[in-house]
Design a protein around this nucleic acid. Structure first.
Lengths: 105, 105
DNA sequence: CTGTTATTTTAATAATTGTTTAACAATGGA
DNA sequence: TCCATTGTTAAACAATTATTAAAATAACAG
């Protein structure tokens, strides 16, 4: 994953409505949730929600599948994990570090 | 850490120059790097750099200390780790999930 | 004190982003 | 077919953000 993709993913999550959408999908698991349910749960208009879904999809953070008239969205954990790995890679130049830090302490 | 702080931290990192600054500080460890060195390494003007340092500091992602005429910046891993925890908490409603996912598989 | 280096601040401008409204598809039931 | 439901798209507008240039602050050396 290159820095451009990381910026895209971070930017997608760096917005209150999109972060709420993503968290909802992370918690609800692999079956996902229909767009309308998300709209109702978060009190967001359909057009606004669609705009944000598009943004999150483009970043690779969520995926969608159509089922009849409904579109189900679910979180894609792979991109998230790559993003987290990028942020913490090679910390402290490989030396053991004494900062409160999961990967280096 | 509440969602507002998470959005602030994500937004701080969701910009190419700031992500590069943060990564540089993550890699260089607890002693940090002087502002001027960062400016030179990333070819960013001092004013622009100062703007981005301010943004990252406000998000709690970096800290600074003055040493003579120099200002040293270093990464604060605590905020990063809280942010990562927020993003992945309670995934898949607590059920074991079969997605490629560090925390749930 | 004067001049130089290191960094921050301010003001102005250009670019990007989020929301709304309205119109547009596509699915499935009567 | 006709209609209601589900969701997406397009255009317009307001708000936020990044960059530049210039001025300001702060620390030190001579």
């Amino acid at each position: 994953m290159d820095s451009g993709q990381v910026v895209t993913a971070l930017a997608a999550l760096a917005q209150p409505t999109r972060l709420a959408i993503y968290r909802l999908l992370v918690v609800c698991g692999k079956d996902g949730m229909a767009a309308g349910q998300v709209a109702e749960k978060l009190a967001v208009s359909p057009a606004t929600l669609s705009f944000h879904f598009r943004n999150l999809s483009h970043a690779g953070l969520i995926e969608s599948r159509q089922a009849g008239r409904f579109v189900y969205y679910c979180a894609n954990f792979g991109v998230m994990n790559e993003m987290l790995a990028y942020l913490t890679a090679n910390c402290c130049a490989g030396e053991p570090c004494d900062l409160a830090h999961d990967k280096c302490e």
